[in-house]
């Protein structure tokens, strides 16, 4: 998949949009100023925890402001993938209310999924996922709409939609 990605977007290496993840545990902090993900330690403030449970390669694409560039911000932050699984990730750690954050995140994820699928990337992957991460992860009462959106993503794109801050590659 990395080769296909480089054929379509040769500039991503030069621009530093593609990184390889080798650690078992990685912690990513979404820097609001640079709009880029920064790899930090478990002791720092982080938004996303990625666990790699295999020896194969795992890649991190800085999608927002790197691969996909638009002024209206309608793309998600990162795309993480190995040979079998891809995860589109959007961090929403703003102070806006949760409903609006979720609404924006869904739009950004959907746009990104469409973009990559139209370029024939990740479309045929076995495990396709999308993750919305809010700043504080806590218990929220069950919501009817969540399952509606989950179904919509599954039916339209065969993508599993989740909310949380942890991604496991095994």
């Amino acid at each position: 998949m990395t080769e296909e990605l480089l054929i379509q977007f040769p500039e991503i290496i030069e621009n530093g949009c593609l990184k390889s993840i080798n650690n078992k545990h990685s912690f990513i902090f979404d820097d609001n100023e640079t709009k880029k993900g920064v790899f930090v330690t478990a002791h720092d403030k982080f938004h996303l925890h990625v666990e790699k449970n295999h020896s194969k390669s795992l890649n991190f694409i800085q999608n927002d402001s790197c691969v996909m560039n638009s002024d209206n911000g309608k793309q998600c932050d990162y795309v993480l993938f190995d040979n079998e699984k891809v995860c589109f990730s959007e961090i929403k750690a703003t102070k806006e209310n949760l409903s609006n954050r979720r609404k924006d995140a869904l739009k950004q994820l959907e746009n990104t999924i469409k973009f990559y699928f139209e370029n024939n990337l990740f479309k045929n992957y076995q495990s396709k996922n999308a993750l919305i991460t809010f700043d504080n992860n806590k218990r929220i009462a069950p919501q009817a709409s969540k399952s509606t959106k989950t179904k919509e993503f599954k039916v339209k794109y065969d993508v599993n939609l989740n909310e949380g801050n942890y991604i496991l590659f095994e």
Binding site: N97, L98, S99, R102, F134, D135, N136, K138, I140, A141, Q143, A144, S145, K146, S147, T148, K149, K151, E152, V155
Partner: peptide, 22 residues
């Protein structure tokens, strides 16, 4: 089309609880 209940006012109230908690 999806055969599901969409986002509604009860969902938004759950979100407001979470906002307050934050």
């Amino acid at each position: 089309k999806l055969g599901q209940i969409k986002e509604n006012m009860i969902d938004r109230i759950s979100d407001e609880f979470s906002d307050e908690f934050s």
